[in-house]
Amino acid sequence: MAQRKVPMRKDIVTGEMQPKKELVRIVKNKQNEVSLDPTGKKPGRGAYIHLNVATAKQAKEKRTFDKAFGVTLADEFYDELIAYVDHQVERAKLFGNGK
């Protein structure tokens, strides 16, 4: 059986290419609202970040998504992102990564 191609995306914070399943998508819609997109299917411009708490904290320090989307985001958005990433990392430890 032929092996399937693994979709790769670039982490906006580190600049590294990662498998899409190891990233979380952040999306900006036409109303300039920025939100987490756990499904990866929301309409709008997307950017990806690795499921790593240190990377999420680095994004908050550098205000990465403010620059990427050209908007000013509240600290609460970055706090929500860090909490979401932390939750996903802990979930993967408990339940495995779904393979």
Rank of each mutant, 00 (worst) to 15 (best):
Asp66Arg: 07
Pro7Val: 12
Lys42Gly: 02
Val85Ala: 02
Ile82Lys: 00
Ile12Asp: 15
Lys62Tyr: 08
Lys62Met: 11
Lys41Asp: 07
Ser35Thr: 15
Asp37Gln: 05
Glu80Lys: 14
Ala74Phe: 07
Ile26Arg: 05
Glu16Asp: 08
Met1Ala: 09
Lys10Met: 13
Tyr84Glu: 02
Lys21Val: 09
Val34Gly: 03
Asp37Leu: 07
Gly98Tyr: 11
Thr64Gln: 07
Glu90Arg: 14
Leu94Arg: 15
Met8Thr: 12
Val53Phe: 04
Thr14Gln: 07
Met1Val: 08
Gln3Asp: 14
Lys57Tyr: 07
Ala59Glu: 04
His50Pro: 00
Ala2Ile: 11
Gly46Glu: 03
Ile12His: 11
Lys41Pro: 02
Glu22Val: 01
Lys28Pro: 02
Leu73His: 12
Gln58Asp: 04
Asp86Ile: 00
Val13Ala: 08
Pro7Met: 10
Lys5Thr: 12
Glu22Phe: 03
Ala47Asn: 07
Phe95Asn: 14
Glu22Met: 09
Glu61Tyr: 08
Ala74Arg: 13
Pro19Leu: 10
Glu76Arg: 15
Lys21Met: 04
Thr64Asn: 05
Ala68Ser: 11
Arg45Pro: 00
Ala74Glu: 15
Asp66Val: 07
Ala56Pro: 00
Val34Gln: 07
Gln58Leu: 13
Val71Lys: 01
Gly46His: 05
Val85Thr: 03
Ala74Val: 06
Thr64Arg: 05
Leu81His: 05
Glu76Met: 12
Phe95Val: 03
Gly44Thr: 04
Tyr84Thr: 04
Gln3Trp: 09
Asp79Thr: 12
Glu61Cys: 02
Asn52Val: 04
Val27Arg: 04
Lys42His: 07
Tyr84Arg: 03
Met1Ser: 14
Arg9Glu: 05
Phe77Met: 09
Val13His: 01
Ala83Cys: 04
Asp79Trp: 06
Asn52Gly: 03
Thr14Asp: 12
Met17Lys: 14
Glu90Trp: 02
Lys20Asn: 11
Lys62Pro: 08
Ala92Pro: 00
Val24Met: 02
Asp86Asn: 10
Ala74His: 14
Lys93Arg: 14
Ile49Gly: 00
Pro7Thr: 11
Arg45Asn: 06
Gln88Ala: 11
Ala83His: 10
Val53Thr: 13
Lys5His: 13
Val71His: 04
Ala92Met: 13
Lys93Phe: 04
Leu81Pro: 10
Ile26Ser: 06
Thr39Lys: 15
Asp75Cys: 03
Leu23Lys: 01
Lys30His: 10
Lys20Val: 12
Phe65Cys: 03
Arg63Ala: 04
Gly70His: 10
Glu90Val: 01
Asn29Thr: 09
Arg45Gln: 07
Lys60Asn: 06
Ser35Ala: 14
Thr39Asn: 13
Asn52Phe: 00
Asn52His: 08
Asp75Lys: 11
Leu36Met: 06
Arg91Glu: 01
